[in-house]
């Protein structure tokens, strides 16, 4: 294989890897503050794309439509937590996880009902020919995907490290009881986490729709991949989730290059199983900590 061809596969891997990273971050943020896996995370991705197309159809320019879609999805994430999950918090993690599965089905069905069963597409943010990098072609939209991923990661880092809210979120991820003794309203933190997770998922859906199109059922597949990426990184650590996403994207892309495209979608499942069997704390995790 020539260097340029190899580079082409690497670029493709990093492109889908960025999307997985954003979705994985959504899993991580919710897991951090609640200790549960939110199986509706993939639907936030779907809503981001589908709602952008809908807002765009109303005549809004693409960036505004995307912003509106991200904001709407974040609001839906908050409402989902507030009205579907909060009252059941005392029922334990299993019940909550099952509610997220139910929520995912409801969101999917509503999307199909409201936006139709067909594939939806969106123009590229900045249409134009691909850019040549060392013989490999990079779509302009891929640059947007990377750019938005970087912005999201930096904002999230700043939020966690530098703000009062972020400190409260980290306190919450360590112990709810201790956080409450400090005066942190943990119920509110959980709600905010769902909003952030939904926004991250929606941002991914918005950024990638011009490349892949989207539809009401786009959430399930990306949910599995984002989950695999989050597990690979060792749930609970945002930086590791991003690396997990990029590694998964590269693995998929290189498997197409060296094995066969037939197995591309099986890679994430294989990764998920191998990590869970062999290294449940993920690539970067140390000993598994007990969630209270």
């Amino acid at each position: 294989m020539e260097a340029a061809e190899f580079l082409q596969y690497v670029i493709a891997g990093l492109k889908s890897g960025s999307i997985y990273a954003l979705v994985a971050l959504g899993f991580t943020v919710v897991y951090g503050s609640t200790g549960i896996i939110n199986f509706a995370q993939g639907e936030f991705f779907m809503l981001g794309g589908v709602l952008t197309v809908w807002f765009y159809g109303l005549g809004l320019p693409v960036p505004i439509a995307g912003l509106a879609a991200v904001a709407t999805t974040a609001a839906l994430g908050i409402l989902f937590e507030r009205f579907a999950l909060r009252k059941q918090r005392s029922a334990g993690p299993l019940v909550l996880v099952i509610i997220t599965i139910g929520g995912s089905m409801v969101m999917k069905s509503l999307a199909r009902h409201l936006f139709g069963p067909d594939e939806l597409s969106l123009p590229e943010f900045t249409p134009g020919p691909s850019i040549d990098i060392a013989g490999a072609a990079v779509e302009r939209q891929a640059l947007w995907v990377w750019g938005l991923t970087i912005v999201a990661v930096v904002v999230l880092w700043w939020l966690y490290r530098k703000t009062r809210l972020g400190r409260a979120m980290r306190a919450c991820s360590i112990s709810h009881d201790a956080a409450r003794l400090m005066g942190i309203d943990t119920a509110r933190i959980v709600m905010v986490s769902f909003g952030i997770a939904a926004a991250l998922g929606a941002l991914a859906g918005f950024a990638v729709t011009p490349l892949t199109q989207t539809s009401w059922d786009a959430g399930a597949a990306i949910g599995v991949k984002g989950f695999a990426a989050a597990i690979l990184g060792g749930l609970g650590n945002p930086v590791a989730s991003v690396v997990g996403g990029l590694v998964l994207g590269l693995l998929e892309s290189l498997s197409v290059a060296f094995i066969s495209s037939t197995y591309k979608d099986a890679i994430s499942l294989a990764v998920l199983l191998i990590v869970l069997f062999a290294r449940p704390q993920g690539l970067f995790g140390s000993a598994r900590r007990e969630k209270v």
Binding site: R167, I174, A178, L181, I184
Partner: peptide, 29 residues
Amino acid sequence: VRQRLALVPEGRMLFGPLTVDENLLIGAH
């Protein structure tokens, strides 16, 4: 805690992965 009663709990319940300063700042939340 906003009524000005604070508990130093059994087993301390510190935010172990966070720094000393961060623990103190969270204490003032």
